[in-house]
Amino acid sequence: MCLGIPGQVVEIVDEAEHLARVDVSGVRRVISVKLLAEQGVAPGDWVLVHVGFGMAKIDEQEAQLTLDQVQRMGQDYVDEIELFKTTAAEAS
């Protein structure tokens, strides 16, 4: 369940009420960032938005790590094929 999409904080609208304006591909909405109050939210941060609430800050480093892993996992197969081809060629 739970439609959640990444949005970028562009402005803190109301510090006391924890309201921030986020941007999703040019679409803007004021959301509540109360659930992220302890971590603090600032313009430029990316947050996961669900039903008008920031649920979690999105960690760019972790995102990059995940993408690197995806590349590596895909590469495993390519490497194996290369290895297989090389060894096959050597064996023949």
Binding site: L3, I5, G7, V24, S25, G26, V27, R29, V49
Partner: peptide, 12 residues
């Protein structure tokens, strides 16, 4: 349009 798409994504 990317903005229209963003809006569709936001609302599902």
């Amino acid at each position: 349009d990317p903005t229209v798409l963003g809006c569709c994504d936001m609302l599902g």
